[in-house]
Amino acid sequence: MNIVVLVKQVPNTTDVKIDPKTGNLIREGVASIINPEDRHGLEAGLQIREKLGGTVTVISMGPPQAMETVCECLAMGADRGILLSDRAFAGADTWATSTALGMAVRKLGEFDLILAGRQAIDGDTAQIGPQVAEFLRIAQLTYVRRLDAQEGKVIAERALEDGCEHIEAPTPVLVTVLGALNKPRHPTVEGILAATSERSPVEVWNAADIGVKVQDVGLAGSLTHVVRTFTPKGARDTRRLEGSATVIAAELLEALRQKEIRLGE
């Protein structure tokens, strides 16, 4: 089975801090990681390759530093990595990103399965998977937490808000996965040394390589634009309650009663 895995390098948002003075994100010193759910997508691809044979190709769009992410995927076991890197790709919304990723998948040629994380932790949009599927006019399965691939089809369990559904789709199909799907393996030492060698199978593709015009990708090709960013601010007057637990309990219940909050009904 020819498998393509879409991965994104993201800042580790749990490390992201806000400058209390300016309200800006402090991105300095924040580690870049493979988007967590994308690692689960890669793990799924590697497991399917182990079962059915075939190849796993990783595609990542990002700045030159994203080479690290592609190499990490190779170290985990991917056969080939494609880094879509071009200044023209910068600032893309999901429309422009799915154009670039879709064109890159097309350039790869034949594929049976595309895997991706449900969403990236820096944007949380969950739009790239479905938009690439639509670009390629293939089936999509999102929110997948169990996956069984066979020749010609996949059977998946999709998480719904309440419960789940078991669903079947013919290949080619795009699947976005949840962390519950599997436990990603750690790279091997041998894999790391091979992936970081200058001969490792990573290609860097630019806009011309995937056959797009600069107007169709990146910021220029985006349909949505950010007009303002700001730090969310909770403006509440905090009242501190002090004393013994019993005193605090009595004070709190009385205060809530005065606010007409009815407890215990």
Binding site: T13, I18, L25, I121, D122, T224, H225, R228, T229, P232
Partner: peptide, 11 residues
């Protein structure tokens, strides 16, 4: 965005 660290207004 960024896990709720910032808010973005988009058009």
């Amino acid at each position: 965005a960024f896990g709720g660290n910032i808010m973005a207004t988009i058009v």
